[in-house]
Each structure stands twice: as structure tokens, then as C-alpha cells.
Computed example of a mutant assay.
Amino acid sequence: MTHIASHRGGSHLWPENSKFAFAETAKLEVEMVEFDVHQTRDSRLVVHHDASIDRMTDGKGAIADLTYDELMRHVILGTRGERIPTLGETIAIFEPSKVDLRLEIKTKADGNAYEGMESRIAAELMLSGMLKRSMVTSFSLFRLEAFVEALGMHGGKREDLLGLVWLCSPLLLTQLGSKGLLASLNAYDIREIALKADTISAAVLDFWRGNGITVHGWAAHTREAAQAMFRLGVASFTTDRPDLAIAARPA
């Protein structure tokens, strides 16, 4: 079964990564919600896509440079005064629902890691009991490796997760090719990859499946793109329009 993940809580329907968007997503017939985790200067985990708050709030600055209290002075544009949610607040919205988590580990704007963030994410997922309902993703293999190590230190196992997925950009695919990407996955013992929806074909799936890799999609934002994901049978895909994806799901 191909699962639908509401990207940033459905960012073409509601203000992305907001509590309102998450509450609306929790009502939908989707399997997952996709969201992004950053860390404040005082080590609080918050859910926001960009490394800075410039685009989506009435404030400016890098999340890494702001304390949690400083961050809470600013509201998300398009909402009725909502602040950027914490990871804990996001988990609390979906815990009573049937919608599971597709969490992306982010980095600072310069690509460097947030110190200790993977450990804090692992601890929060385990404490909330949501580890088995979580798929963890990142564009960085280093961050996935760090998460697995942190999970083990907290007594968890990667097998408890719904998935551990390397997000791959079209540029990286062009630079390394499928064989290069496969070598990277094997080096880090990652068995799942997410490719941009418009780069996935039957031949592409045959290559990855033939090498024991599960394929997910991202950026399937139209009904036609969602139909292609269902037709190809990818494991899951993200979409900014979960309503269109639901309508495209085969009976």
C-alpha cells in the first residue's frame, strides 16, 4: 500500500508546520504527516522548515541563534497569532489520531548539525511512545547515522521505526548516479531512499528494488503526480495537497 504524507501539514492548504495545519491534517484520511525539526540556541526542539524564521513569521533570524523565549515573540504568518510549535506539541496533536509521523532532521543554514539534536529527538519519541509510529528522514546520511547511534544510547532500536529514509535531491542523483547513491546507502546501512516524484519511473523502481532498497517519493503536489505514485507503488510520498492525493487514491 502506498502511503500519503501531508507535507509540512499540507502547505498549499494551510500555513505550513502550524498547529492549525497539523490539526486539519489529523482529520484527513492520510497515513502520515511530514514535518521538520530544528533546535533553538537553548536546545529546544521546534517544528519549522527553514533554518531561519524570516519567510514564515513576522520576525527575522536563525533558529540556532534564538532562544525559545525569543522565538515565541514571533507569530506564524497567516495564522491567528500562532507561534512555532515544539516537537512535543506536534506529537501531542497526532498521538490520539491515526496519522503517523514522518519527521525530517534538519541542519543549520550552513549545513552543520545542531549539537545533540538527534539524541533529543530520539528521547522525545521514546518518551511519548511514538517511536514505532515515526519515520525519520534526512538529506544528510550523517544525521541519520547520528540518530541511529543516539537511539541506541536511549535503549531504542532502528527496527522499531516505521522507516529510516535518506532524502535524495535531483542534483545529487545527477552528480552520483544511481550506482553512486547505492554505494552511499550501503556504506551507511540505510535501506530506504526518497526520490523527487518526477524522477521516479518503473525502470528506476526496478533498479532500487532489485538492490533491496525501498523507494519513497517527495513533492507529488498534483493529482496527476499522486496518481503516478500510486500506479508505480512507491512506499509513501509527500504532497502539499493531501486532498488531491486522497482523491487520486485507487478504490
Rank of each mutant, 00 (worst) to 15 (best):
R223L: 13
Y188D: 12
P250N: 06
S138L: 04
A113H: 14
L125H: 03
M117G: 04
S236C: 08
G116D: 08
R231W: 03
A150S: 15
T107L: 07
P170N: 12
D54F: 05
I105C: 02
R231M: 12
R158W: 04
E29D: 15
V75K: 15
H74L: 05
K132A: 15
I193D: 08
L45Q: 08
Q227G: 01
D65F: 04
S184Q: 15
A146G: 00
R120N: 07
F237I: 02
H74V: 07
E16F: 05
T67S: 05
H3V: 14
S43K: 14
R83N: 08
L28P: 07
V234N: 01
A122S: 09
S140A: 14
K60A: 11
E145C: 12
E31I: 06
S134M: 11
R209M: 13
S138P: 02
P96M: 12
I63P: 06
L66P: 08
A64V: 12
K108D: 13
T222F: 12
M32N: 12
R241P: 01
L205D: 07
C168M: 13
N186Y: 11
T214P: 02
I190H: 09
L66S: 04
G59F: 04
A203V: 08
R8H: 07
F35K: 05
D240M: 11
I246C: 03
H216K: 09
T214K: 09
E124S: 06
S138H: 02
H49S: 06
E145I: 02
